[in-house]
Amino acid sequence: MLNIQNVHSSYGAIKAIKGVSLVIENGELVCVIGANGAGKSTLLKAIVGLISLREGKVYFDNTDITRLPTHKIARLGISLVPEGRLLFNDLTVRENLVMGAYMRNQEDMHHEFNTIFELFPRLAERLNQRAGTLSGGEQQMLAIGRALMGAPKLLILDEPSLGIAPRLVSDIYEAIEQLNKAGLTIMLVEQNANMAFSVSKRGYVMGLGRITLEGPTPELKENPEVRKAYLGG
Protein backbone atom coordinates (compact mmCIF):
# COMPACT_ATOMS: atom_id res chain seq x y z
CA MET A 1 0.00 0.00 0.00
CA LEU A 2 2.73 2.45 1.02
CA ASN A 3 6.13 2.05 -0.57
CA ILE A 4 8.93 4.43 0.33
CA GLN A 5 12.14 4.15 -1.67
CA ASN A 6 15.44 5.68 -0.64
CA VAL A 7 13.99 8.93 0.69
CA HIS A 8 16.33 11.79 1.56
CA SER A 9 15.12 15.00 3.12
CA SER A 10 16.15 17.60 5.61
CA TYR A 11 14.21 19.73 8.03
CA GLY A 12 16.17 22.17 10.08
CA ALA A 13 19.85 21.53 10.60
CA ILE A 14 19.91 18.10 12.24
CA LYS A 15 16.57 16.44 11.68
CA ALA A 16 17.48 14.86 8.37
CA ILE A 17 16.62 11.52 6.81
CA LYS A 18 19.23 9.82 4.71
CA GLY A 19 17.96 7.08 2.46
CA VAL A 20 14.94 5.55 4.18
CA SER A 21 13.05 2.73 2.48
CA LEU A 22 10.06 0.97 3.94
CA VAL A 23 6.94 -0.88 2.88
CA ILE A 24 3.52 -1.21 4.46
CA GLU A 25 1.12 -3.80 3.08
CA ASN A 26 -2.65 -3.57 3.00
CA GLY A 27 -4.20 -4.36 6.40
CA GLU A 28 -0.95 -4.26 8.37
CA LEU A 29 -0.17 -2.44 11.59
CA VAL A 30 3.50 -1.52 11.34
CA CYS A 31 5.44 0.40 13.94
CA VAL A 32 8.44 2.65 13.50
CA ILE A 33 10.34 3.25 16.71
CA GLY A 34 13.28 5.50 17.37
CA ALA A 35 14.67 7.98 19.84
CA ASN A 36 13.92 11.67 19.84
CA GLY A 37 15.68 13.25 16.86
CA ALA A 38 15.93 10.01 14.87
CA GLY A 39 14.03 11.65 12.01
CA LYS A 40 10.67 9.91 12.50
CA SER A 41 8.52 13.02 12.24
CA THR A 42 10.61 14.33 9.36
CA LEU A 43 9.94 11.09 7.51
CA LEU A 44 6.20 11.44 8.08
CA LYS A 45 6.19 15.07 6.95
CA ALA A 46 8.02 13.98 3.81
CA ILE A 47 5.45 11.24 3.10
CA VAL A 48 2.50 13.64 3.27
CA GLY A 49 4.28 16.40 1.38
CA LEU A 50 4.62 18.93 4.20
CA ILE A 51 8.35 19.06 3.44
CA SER A 52 9.97 18.29 0.11
CA LEU A 53 12.26 15.38 -0.71
CA ARG A 54 15.79 15.83 -1.94
CA GLU A 55 15.85 12.33 -3.34
CA GLY A 56 13.72 9.19 -3.46
CA LYS A 57 10.16 8.19 -4.28
CA VAL A 58 6.94 7.63 -2.35
CA TYR A 59 4.25 5.39 -3.84
CA PHE A 60 0.76 4.95 -2.43
CA ASP A 61 -1.41 2.24 -4.03
CA ASN A 62 1.11 2.21 -6.90
CA THR A 63 0.59 5.94 -7.52
CA ASP A 64 3.64 8.17 -7.35
CA ILE A 65 2.78 10.79 -4.72
CA THR A 66 6.30 12.14 -4.30
CA ARG A 67 5.59 15.65 -5.59
CA LEU A 68 1.88 15.97 -4.82
CA PRO A 69 0.67 18.82 -2.57
CA THR A 70 -0.43 17.72 0.90
CA HIS A 71 -4.17 18.20 0.38
CA LYS A 72 -4.12 15.96 -2.69
CA ILE A 73 -2.24 13.24 -0.83
CA ALA A 74 -4.87 13.43 1.93
CA ARG A 75 -7.62 13.08 -0.68
CA LEU A 76 -6.02 9.87 -1.94
CA GLY A 77 -6.58 8.36 1.50
CA ILE A 78 -3.60 9.02 3.77
CA SER A 79 -4.48 10.58 7.12
CA LEU A 80 -1.68 11.74 9.37
CA VAL A 81 -2.29 12.40 13.05
CA PRO A 82 0.63 14.77 13.42
CA GLU A 83 3.14 15.32 16.17
CA GLY A 84 1.64 17.82 18.62
CA ARG A 85 -1.82 16.91 17.25
CA LEU A 86 -2.35 20.28 15.48
CA LEU A 87 -5.99 20.52 16.46
CA PHE A 88 -8.05 23.56 15.55
CA ASN A 89 -8.02 24.88 19.10
CA ASP A 90 -10.57 27.66 18.61
CA LEU A 91 -13.05 25.32 16.94
CA THR A 92 -15.40 23.03 18.85
CA VAL A 93 -14.94 19.27 18.98
CA ARG A 94 -17.78 18.92 16.48
CA GLU A 95 -16.26 21.46 14.09
CA ASN A 96 -12.88 19.71 14.27
CA LEU A 97 -14.57 16.46 13.27
CA VAL A 98 -16.47 18.21 10.46
CA MET A 99 -13.14 19.48 9.14
CA GLY A 100 -11.85 15.90 9.16
CA ALA A 101 -14.74 15.00 6.87
CA TYR A 102 -14.13 17.99 4.60
CA MET A 103 -14.03 15.87 1.44
CA ARG A 104 -17.06 13.73 2.24
CA ASN A 105 -20.79 14.19 1.82
CA GLN A 106 -23.22 14.94 4.63
CA GLU A 107 -24.60 11.41 4.91
CA ASP A 108 -21.20 9.68 5.15
CA MET A 109 -20.16 12.28 7.67
CA HIS A 110 -23.05 11.55 10.03
CA HIS A 111 -22.43 7.84 9.74
CA GLU A 112 -18.76 8.39 10.61
CA PHE A 113 -19.69 10.51 13.63
CA ASN A 114 -21.34 7.47 15.23
CA THR A 115 -18.36 5.21 14.54
CA ILE A 116 -16.06 7.68 16.27
CA PHE A 117 -18.33 8.12 19.28
CA GLU A 118 -18.35 4.34 19.75
CA LEU A 119 -14.56 4.34 19.65
CA PHE A 120 -14.15 7.39 21.89
CA PRO A 121 -17.32 7.97 23.94
CA ARG A 122 -15.62 10.88 25.70
CA LEU A 123 -15.75 12.94 22.53
CA ALA A 124 -19.52 12.64 22.34
CA GLU A 125 -19.79 14.28 25.76
CA ARG A 126 -17.66 17.22 24.70
CA LEU A 127 -19.05 18.00 21.26
CA ASN A 128 -19.58 21.71 21.80
CA GLN A 129 -16.47 22.33 23.84
CA ARG A 130 -13.56 24.13 22.23
CA ALA A 131 -10.76 21.71 21.32
CA GLY A 132 -8.17 23.83 23.11
CA THR A 133 -9.90 23.22 26.44
CA LEU A 134 -9.68 19.40 26.30
CA SER A 135 -7.15 17.39 28.31
CA GLY A 136 -4.12 15.96 26.53
CA GLY A 137 -5.63 12.50 26.18
CA GLU A 138 -8.93 13.84 24.92
CA GLN A 139 -7.07 16.00 22.41
CA GLN A 140 -5.28 12.92 21.12
CA MET A 141 -8.61 11.11 20.79
CA LEU A 142 -10.00 14.07 18.89
CA ALA A 143 -6.96 14.18 16.63
CA ILE A 144 -7.41 10.48 15.80
CA GLY A 145 -11.17 10.91 15.42
CA ARG A 146 -10.65 13.86 13.10
CA ALA A 147 -8.25 11.81 10.96
CA LEU A 148 -10.75 8.92 10.81
CA MET A 149 -13.54 11.24 9.67
CA GLY A 150 -11.88 11.30 6.27
CA ALA A 151 -12.25 7.49 6.01
CA PRO A 152 -8.55 6.99 5.23
CA LYS A 153 -7.03 3.88 3.66
CA LEU A 154 -3.85 4.44 5.64
CA LEU A 155 -3.76 6.01 9.10
CA ILE A 156 -0.39 7.33 10.25
CA LEU A 157 0.01 8.11 13.94
CA ASP A 158 2.91 10.21 15.19
CA GLU A 159 3.61 9.51 18.88
CA PRO A 160 0.02 9.01 20.05
CA SER A 161 1.18 8.30 23.62
CA LEU A 162 3.32 11.40 24.05
CA GLY A 163 2.43 13.51 27.09
CA ILE A 164 -0.75 11.60 27.95
CA ALA A 165 -1.92 10.05 31.21
CA PRO A 166 -1.19 6.26 31.26
CA ARG A 167 -4.86 5.29 31.62
CA LEU A 168 -5.76 7.22 28.49
CA VAL A 169 -2.77 5.77 26.63
CA SER A 170 -4.22 2.30 27.06
CA ASP A 171 -7.63 3.54 25.89
CA ILE A 172 -6.01 4.98 22.78
CA TYR A 173 -4.00 1.81 22.11
CA GLU A 174 -7.11 -0.29 22.49
CA ALA A 175 -8.75 1.89 19.85
CA ILE A 176 -5.74 1.50 17.55
CA GLU A 177 -5.89 -2.29 17.83
CA GLN A 178 -9.64 -2.27 17.24
CA LEU A 179 -9.27 -0.13 14.12
CA ASN A 180 -6.63 -2.45 12.70
CA LYS A 181 -8.76 -5.53 13.41
CA ALA A 182 -11.57 -3.85 11.50
CA GLY A 183 -9.25 -3.73 8.49
CA LEU A 184 -7.57 -0.32 8.63
CA THR A 185 -3.91 -0.15 7.63
CA ILE A 186 -1.92 1.70 10.29
CA MET A 187 1.61 3.08 10.51
CA LEU A 188 2.45 3.73 14.14
CA VAL A 189 5.44 5.90 14.97
CA GLU A 190 6.55 5.85 18.60
CA GLN A 191 9.32 6.51 21.07
CA ASN A 192 7.45 4.27 23.46
CA ALA A 193 8.67 0.94 22.06
CA ASN A 194 6.88 -1.19 24.66
CA MET A 195 3.49 0.15 23.70
CA ALA A 196 4.22 0.04 19.97
CA PHE A 197 5.42 -3.58 20.09
CA SER A 198 2.36 -4.62 22.09
CA VAL A 199 0.04 -3.99 19.13
CA SER A 200 2.15 -4.44 15.98
CA LYS A 201 3.39 -7.58 14.26
CA ARG A 202 6.18 -5.96 12.31
CA GLY A 203 8.38 -2.95 12.87
CA TYR A 204 11.24 -0.72 11.86
CA VAL A 205 13.83 0.89 14.10
CA MET A 206 15.10 4.30 13.10
CA GLY A 207 18.25 6.04 14.24
CA LEU A 208 19.96 9.17 12.98
CA GLY A 209 17.90 9.40 9.84
CA ARG A 210 18.26 5.78 8.75
CA ILE A 211 16.44 2.48 9.23
CA THR A 212 18.81 0.50 11.42
CA LEU A 213 16.71 -2.64 11.93
CA GLU A 214 13.54 -4.21 10.65
CA GLY A 215 11.60 -7.39 11.22
CA PRO A 216 8.75 -9.10 13.07
CA THR A 217 8.11 -7.60 16.50
CA PRO A 218 9.09 -10.72 18.52
CA GLU A 219 12.50 -10.61 16.83
CA LEU A 220 12.94 -6.91 17.47
CA LYS A 221 12.01 -7.42 21.12
CA GLU A 222 14.81 -9.95 21.52
CA ASN A 223 17.41 -7.87 19.73
CA PRO A 224 20.06 -6.83 22.27
CA GLU A 225 20.47 -3.34 20.84
CA VAL A 226 16.75 -2.68 20.88
CA ARG A 227 16.51 -4.03 24.43
CA LYS A 228 19.31 -1.77 25.55
CA ALA A 229 18.16 1.38 23.79
CA TYR A 230 14.35 1.19 23.99
CA LEU A 231 13.20 -1.44 26.45
CA GLY A 232 15.29 -0.52 29.44
CA GLY A 233 17.77 -3.43 29.30
Binding site: V48, L50, P69, T70, H71, K72, A74, R75, S79, L80, P82, L86, L87, F88, N89, D90, L91, M99, G100, Y102, M103, R146, A147, G150
Partner: peptide, 11 residues
Protein backbone atom coordinates in the same frame (compact mmCIF):
# COMPACT_ATOMS: atom_id res chain seq x y z
CA UNK B 1 -5.75 28.05 13.59
CA UNK B 2 -3.37 25.93 11.57
CA UNK B 3 -2.67 25.88 7.84
CA UNK B 4 -0.81 22.56 7.82
CA UNK B 5 -3.55 20.76 9.74
CA UNK B 6 -6.02 21.98 7.09
CA UNK B 7 -3.82 20.59 4.34
CA UNK B 8 -3.78 17.23 6.16
CA UNK B 9 -7.60 17.22 6.06
CA UNK B 10 -7.50 17.53 2.27
CA UNK B 11 -8.46 21.20 2.39
Amino acid sequence: NNLNACRLMGI
